[in-house]
């Protein structure tokens, strides 16, 4: 039983991280209808940036904030310079996939070139202690991750529902052409969306590396697959869905890895794959997503 509860806690903690990367995917998907295949490697680059600041002696919280700021700007520039010239997803899906896959390859190699390919020690953001509740011990790290995710979700809610900027973002997501006729500068909003996603990715990457105590250029690709599973489950256009989906995917993969002997630790990713496949077959819009209606 204790082992089970421990696994539940670990599953939820990992799920919170998957959920935060999924949140980054959703932020871009909502405004452009596009799935960013480079999201994982963008987070990788941001996290190495965080590590570098920390290595230079900046406190870890400030290092994360600085990295989020840089990532925001970089994300906005990427949208303007690399993504927008390729065209929209309806007509150029394949080209966009190739561009983001190119970014995936290039960013991963760039990290290897700048920081080397050996793993780096990453600090525990919230310290190394644990809180004991009954027989279950929950690490500060897990509690901190939950708290950060809750705050992040709250801030995004306020942004989207209570500010003029958020309203503009939602308007562009619902109909870019009408928004531009209404005087919204659609290009700026898209840049903002990519910047926001990159910043959220930077935060998620720091949480991930902190949970593993390790930063390595190979680990973020799997994170991307888990985040895909989370976003698919929650519905690609729903931030709440992304977080809930992340928690469920974290739980399912950890429990499946622990209890389904056939899968084991190695094949946890297969469980995530199964989640993606089943959701898309049974309920393509996900748990919280809006159903796509195509008009002919």
């Amino acid at each position: 039983m204790d082992l089970f509860l421990d696994r539940v806690v670990i599953g939820l903690e990992q799920g919170a991280i998957y959920g935060s990367v999924a949140l980054a995917l959703v932020l871009i998907y909502r405004s452009t209808g596009f799935v960013n295949f480079a999201q994982g490697e963008m987070a990788l680059f941001s996290t190495f940036l965080t590590w570098q600041f920390w290595e230079w002696g900046v406190p870890i919280a400030a290092a994360i904030a600085a990295s989020m700021g840089v990532s925001f700007l970089a994300g906005a520039v990427i949208e303007r310079v690399l993504i927008r010239p390729v065209g929209d997803v309806e007509h150029n899906a394949l080209a966009l996939v190739i561009v983001t896959v190119g970014m995936l390859l290039a960013l991963n190699a760039l990290v290897g070139w700048i920081w080397g390919t050996e793993g780096r020690r990453f600090p525990k953001i919230f310290g190394a202690g644990t809180v004991d509740i009954g027989s279950v011990s929950i690490s500060y790290q897990a509690l901190g991750t939950f708290a950060v995710l809750a705050v992040l979700l709250g801030l995004l809610y306020l942004l989207f529902q209570r500010t003029k900027l958020g309203l503009a973002v939602r308007a562009v997501a619902s109909n870019a052409e009408s928004s531009s006729l209404a005087g919204i500068r659609v290009g700026r909003i898209l840049m903002f969306g990519w910047g926001l996603a990159a910043a959220v990715g930077a935060l998620a990457g720091a949480l991930y590396a902190s949970e593993l105590s390790l930063l390595d250029s190979n680990i973020f690709f799997q994170l991307l697959i888990y985040a895909f599973a989370a976003a698919t489950l929650g519905g690609f256009d729903s931030p709440v869905g992304a977080v809930v989906g992340g928690l469920v995917v974290g739980l399912v993969t950890v429990l499946a890895g622990g209890y389904v002997g056939f899968l084991g630790e190695d094949l946890k990713l297969v469980a995530a794959f199964a989640v993606i496949l089943v959701v898309l077959l049974v309920r393509p819009q996900g748990l919280f997503g809006r159903k796509q209606v195509s008009r002919v």
Partner: peptide
């Protein structure tokens, strides 16, 4: 690989 990815874009 950086050049390769970049040239793809």
């Amino acid at each position: 690989p950086v050049l390769f990815g970049g040239s793809l874009i």
